[in-house]
Computed example of a mutant assay.
Amino acid sequence: MPYTSVGRQIVLLGAGRVAQHLGPALWRAGHTVTHVWSRTPASAQQVATQIPGALPITSLDLQAVPAAELYILCVPDGAVPAVLAEAVFPAAALVVHTAGALPLAVFAPYAGLRGGVLYPLQTFSPGRLIDWPAVPFCVEAATPADEALVAAVARSLSQVVELVATPQRQQIHVAAVFACNFTNHLLGIGHALLQEAGLPFTLLEPLIRETVQKALAQPPFTVQTGPAVRHDAATLDRHRALLLGHPQWQQIYNQLTASIQAT
């Protein structure tokens, strides 16, 4: 792991997928995660056991958050305002969230806090290993000094750290949803269709790998293939007929076909 900063004392607020991966990674990078909090105490306990020296905060309320140099909110976007409103942080505490779409301005109502963003551009799932040095981090803070501190923490984990303001980060997040979440959903549809035919999903693996490799090597729109880009009406109609039993998937098929042809 790259390590370019003095280790910090950190409290994690949240015990979901981001915290499950980020907490141990921070410890391996030389930081001290002192406490983990969650609205589900068992989840806080589970994450804390994965981080040497970390203690779970057993209280559900946050009226006395333990002292730390940095507080990292690893809760869902919609829960960040509620946690900020409820928690009583030490004066002038530096608190960052890890969300892609949430603006830095979420900290504006709390004059006693120093707000920031530590957004890892990655998808997190149980049991998956994360190649942290390759994960891009988008960093933002209200002051240059705080931005430097948050960036130093990010650089202790990753070799790809960018200072990114809220509008650009939100654009990145939308792009990531298309590239990751929507793509995974489409792969899920492909998997289901092959299951219906009694065929293994592994048949698509070489095609998927080649598609991704091409898209990473050159602008994806320039290497588009398939019946939509060829305006192959007969094949498109056959596909629509095969999808009659799945009207929602047929609608997705039609919308993507129209988008490809328009692009």
Rank of each mutant, 00 (worst) to 15 (best):
D61W: 00
T123W: 03
S259Q: 15
A29E: 09
A44C: 07
Q218C: 02
R209I: 15
G14Y: 04
G23Y: 05
V65K: 03
A154I: 03
V36N: 00
V164Q: 04
A134I: 02
A111T: 15
L102K: 08
G78K: 13
A108R: 13
V80Q: 01
A142H: 09
A68C: 09
T225K: 11
M1Y: 07
A228P: 01
F124P: 13
Q171E: 08
H231E: 04
L118R: 07
L157Y: 08
T34Y: 02
G7S: 10
G198F: 14
T143D: 02
I72L: 11
G16F: 04
A93K: 14
L22A: 13
L216Q: 13
G30R: 00
A25K: 01
R114V: 14
G188H: 11
A15H: 02
Q251F: 04
L186R: 02
L84V: 05
Q20L: 14
W132D: 06
A151N: 06
P219C: 01
V6D: 09
P219H: 02
T183H: 03
A233C: 08
T257W: 13
A48V: 00
A262M: 08
G14R: 06
V6S: 06
F201A: 15
A228S: 00
P247N: 12
V153G: 14
G116M: 09
Q255E: 15
Q20N: 14
A67C: 01
A85I: 11
P109H: 09
A217P: 04
P103N: 01
L62R: 10
A154M: 05
G116A: 05
Q122K: 10
I10Q: 08
